[in-house]
Design a protein around this nucleic acid. Structure first.
Lengths: 362, 362
DNA sequence: GGTCAAAGTGGAAACGTTTCCATCATCAGA
DNA sequence: TCTGATGATGGAAACGTTTCCACTTTGACC
C-alpha cells in the first residue's frame, strides 16, 4: 500500500524549488513573493493535495482555533439545539468546536474542562452542574481563556447567555393564580444538579408567596420516573388536591399529561399543566402545551458570538438575558368549582389552542 | 495582570532539577526513574499545576487523539442522540470529539470534512448528503484514516452503523396492507439530500408493488411546510383519497396528525399515520404514534466502538445492521368501509395503545 | 578489586508551522 | 558609477512533546 504520509509544507517547497518560508508566505498571502515563485508554489500545493496541519500551526501560533464546549447531554434537545446554534455562528469563523458531555455528572464536568484545557482550546462554552465552584473553570480564567456560560445566570468573570428562569417561573405562577389555582406543585427533575430547575422553583415559590398563596409542593422525581408515565401517575396520586402542576420542562409536562390520563383525569379540566422550554412539538399536540418559550439555539448563538468577539480582540461583555415568552396552550383552565379552595372564583374558559406569538430575534 | 502563560514540561523539569526527558518519563510512567526524582517531578508538576499540551503531544506522536464527527444538524434529535452515543463511548478512551454540522448542505459537508482532516483527526464519524461521491472522504481513506458512517448503508471501504431503512419501510407497508389500505402516501422531507428518506420510500414502494397494490404517492415537502400544520393540511387535501400516510420521520408524523385535525379528519378513523425513528415522545401522546423504533444512540455508540477498535490496532469491520422494531400505536386502523377499494376487507380493531416491546441491546 | 549488566539520566532531534533576520539582486536617483 | 532603498528569498529558531542514544552510576558476581 502507498500509505501516504502527511504532505507538509516542506514537500511543497521542495516541489516548487523554494524555501519553506517562501512557500508559507505564498500559501498564507502573508508576505512578498514574485509572481513566478507564487505560481510554482500554488501549483505544487495543488498537485500534491497539500493542506495545512492545524497542529503545527497551533503549536507555533499558540492559538488552536478550537473552542471547547461542555453540555450535560446532547440527548436533551435543549442543549443539542444550543450547541447547534453555537456551531452555526462558528461555521465561517475558522474555529472548530471540541465537544464534551458529562451526563449531568459534576465530577465528569470538571474532568472534561480539564481535558478541554489541555487541548489548548482558545475559549470555552459551558453548561455544567456547579460552575460557581469549579476549580477548573477558575483555572481557565487564570489562563486568560474566555468562558461563555450557557443557561446559567451570569457569574463572576464569566459571561452567560441565559434566560431569566426566576422571572419566567413567576409568569407561570401568575397564570396559575389568574385562573384561581391555589394548590399547585412543581415537578422537578434533577433538582440537586440543575440550577435552572432550582431557579424555576424559586421564582414559582416567590410569586406564590407574594400573592399570599400556599407554597407549591416541590415534587422531585428521578429520570426513570420521568419517562415512565405509570410511575408518574403514582406520584401524582400521592399529591392529591393539586389543581395545577408546573413541570420543569416540556417533555416532563407531556409525560404528566399521559400520567393524568392513566389516572382517569382530564387535562385541563381536572389538572392544569404547564411546561418549560417551548419545544416545537408542544404546539402540535392535540391539546397544545402551555409553556414558557425559550430559544436554546439563540443562547448557543449568543454564547458563541460573545466568545468570538472576545477572541477577535473585542470586548468580552455580558449581554442582557435572552427573552422568554409565555405560550398559551390548552392545558390550562380554572380549577373545578367543587374544589372548596377555588369556590367563589369565576372559572375562565381555557386558553385558545393556537395563539399567535412572536419572539424578538435572539 | 499575572497573565500566566502555559506551564510546560520544561518548567516542571527546571523546578524538579532534572532534564525534560526524565520529567516526561515520570509523568508518563514510560521509563525508569529513581524514587527520588520521581517524587520531585510529581511534586513540581502538582505545585505548578502542570498539564500536558495536547498540541505538543499530537505534533510529536502523530496522533491527535481527536475524532472528527460530521452530522447534518444537532437540532435533529436523531443525530444529536447519535453524537451523544458516540461521545459516551469515547469518554474514557482519551479521544476527543471534534464536531461539525452542515445544515444538510452537501457543499458544506465536504468543506467540513476537509477542515476536520486538516485538524489531523485520527478518525471520522460521518453522516452526510452524498458520501458515495465525496472526494474528501476518499482522501481520508488514502491517508489511512478510518471512517465510520452513521445512518448510511455500508459503502466501499467505510464501515457504517445503520438500520436497514428499506426493510423497515417494507414493514410499514405490510402493516398498512394488513389493515386493508390501498391508497397510501409517503411524505418525504429532504428527499433529494437524504438517502435515508429515499431508501424508506424505495422499501415502501417495493412492498406495495410486491403485493399488487397501487404505487404510493410520493409527497415531497419543504422544511417550512413540515413545521406548519396549516400548510401541511393544504398539501394533504390535494392528495385526497389517501387512507394511510407514512411520514419519513416521527416529528413529521405528529405534524400530520395536527394537520388532519385542522382538516376535520380523525386519526386513525379517517387517516392512518405512521412515523419513523421511534422518538420517546411518540409514546406519551394521547394517540400513541405507530412508528419504526430505532436506536440513534446505539448507532453512535456502534460507530464509535468500531472506530475505536480500528484505532487501537484491531480490525475495522462492518457489523450487521442495527435492529429496528415496529412499534404499534393507535394511529393505525382499517380504512373506512365506504371507501370502495377497501370494501370486502374486514376492518380490524386499532392496535392497542401501549404494547410492550424490547429491542436487543445495540 | 575488577568486570558487566542494568538502571538512571539528560542532550538533542524530530514533528509542521510561522516569523525573524540576514542575504542578495534589482533599480531609481544622484 | 556609486549609494541606498526596496523587494525577494531562504536559513534558522521557536512552539511542547516524546524518544533515541550516549553517558554515568550502581550493584552483583566472580
Amino acid at each position: 500500500m502507498p500509505s501516504k504520509t502527511r504532505i507538509t509544507i516542506k514537500d511543497v517547497a521542495r516541489e516548487a524549488g523554494c524555501g519553506v518560508a517562501t512557500a508559507s508566505r505564498v500559501l498564507n498571502n502573508s508576505g512578498p513573493a514574485s509572481a513566478d515563485v507564487r505560481k510554482r508554489v500554488e501549483k505544487a500545493a495543488r498537485s500534491l493535495g497539500f493542506s495545512f496541519s492545524a497542529t503545527g500551526r497551533a503549536l507555533q501560533s499558540k492559538r488552536s482555533m478550537t473552542i471547547g464546549c461542555l453540555v450535560p447531554s446532547l440527548a436533551n434537545p435543549v442543549f443539542a439545539e444550543a450547541v447547534q446554534g453555537a456551531q452555526e455562528v462558528l461555521l465561517g469563523s475558522g474555529y472548530q468546536l471540541l465537544i464534551s458531555s458529562s451526563n449531568y455528572d459534576g465530577a465528569i464536568d470538571n474532568e472534561a474542562i480539564a481535558t478541554l484545557l489541555s487541548n489548548d482550546v482558545d475559549g470555552l462554552i459551558v453548561t455544567m452542574t456547579a460552575p460557581e465552584k469549579s476549580r477548573e473553570l477558575k483555572q481557565a480564567r487564570e489562563r486568560n481563556i474566555p468562558v461563555s456560560l450557557m443557561f446559567h445566570d451570569p457569574l463572576d468573570g464569566f459571561c452567560s447567555a441565559y434566560v431569566d428562569n426566576f422571572e419566567a417561573a413567576r409568569e407561570i405562577a401568575r397564570q396559575f393564580a389568574a385562573l384561581g389555582h391555589r394548590r399547585t406543585g412543581f415537578l422537578a427533575l434533577r433538582f440537586a444538579t440543575s440550577d435552572r430547575s432550582r431557579n424555576r422553583y424559586a421564582g414559582f415559590l416567590a410569586e406564590c408567596r407574594a400573592r399570599g398563596l400556599p407554597d407549591p409542593a416541590l415534587i422531585e422525581i428521578s429520570e426513570a420516573e420521568a419517562k415512565t408515565p405509570e410511575k408518574l401517575a403514582d406520584i401524582l396520586r400521592e399529591h392529591s388536591g393539586l389543581t395545577a402542576v408546573f413541570a420543569s420542562n416540556d417533555f416532563l409536562a407531556i409525560a404528566v399529561q399521559k400520567a393524568a390520563r392513566l389516572s382517569g383525569w382530564r387535562v385541563p379540566e381536572d389538572l392544569s399543566v404547564a411546561g418549560f422550554d417551548g419545544i416545537e412539538i408542544g404546539r402540535m399536540l392535540d391539546i397544545p402545551l402551555a409553556t414558557i418559550e425559550t430559544r436554546p439555539a439563540a443562547m448557543g448563538r449568543q454564547a458563541a458570538e460573545t466568545l468570538l468577539c472576545a477572541l477577535q480582540g473585542g470586548p468580552f461583555e455580558q449581554r442582557p438575558a435572552l427573552p422568554f415568552q409565555f405560550r398559551a396552550g390548552a392545558t390550562l383552565a380554572a380549577p373545578r368549582p367543587e374544589s372548596p379552595t377555588a369556590a367563589g372564583i369565576a372559572p375562565q374558559p381555557p386558553s385558545v389552542p393556537s395563539l399567535k406569538y412572536a419572539l424578538k430575534q435572539g
